[in-house]
Amino acid sequence: MNPVPWVAALPMYNVSPSLEACWREWLADVLHVVEPAARIVESDSGLDALWRRDDLLLSQTCGYPLTHELRDIVQLVATPCFDAPGCDGPYYSSALVTHADASFATLENFRGSTVAFNQTDSNSGFNVLRHAVAPLARGGRFFGSSLQTGSHIASLQAVAERRADLAAIDCVTMAFVCDERPALAQAVKQIEWTEASPGLPLIASKAVPAERIAELRSALKEALAMRPERARRLRLKGFATLSMDDYAHITQLENEAIESGYARLA
Rank of each mutant, 00 (worst) to 15 (best):
P85W: 14
C87I: 03
C87N: 09
C87H: 14
D88Y: 05
P90L: 08
Y91Q: 08
L96T: 06
L96D: 14
H99V: 00
A100D: 05
A100T: 08
A100M: 01
A102V: 02
A105R: 15
E108I: 01
F110V: 01
R111P: 00
G112P: 09
G112L: 02
G112I: 05
G112Y: 10
S113A: 15
S113W: 02
T114G: 01
V115F: 08
T120F: 03
T120Y: 09
D121K: 07
G125P: 03
F126S: 06
F126D: 07
V128G: 11
R130F: 10
A132Y: 09
V133T: 11
A134C: 07
P135L: 09
L136G: 03
A137L: 02
G140I: 10
F142V: 03
S146G: 03
S146D: 12
L147F: 12
G150K: 00
S151L: 06
I153M: 11
A154K: 05
A154Y: 04
S155R: 07
R163M: 10
R163W: 14
A164R: 13
L166G: 01
L166R: 04
A167Y: 11
A167S: 14
A168E: 10
A168N: 07
D170H: 12
C171N: 13
C171G: 09
V172M: 06
T173H: 10
M174F: 13
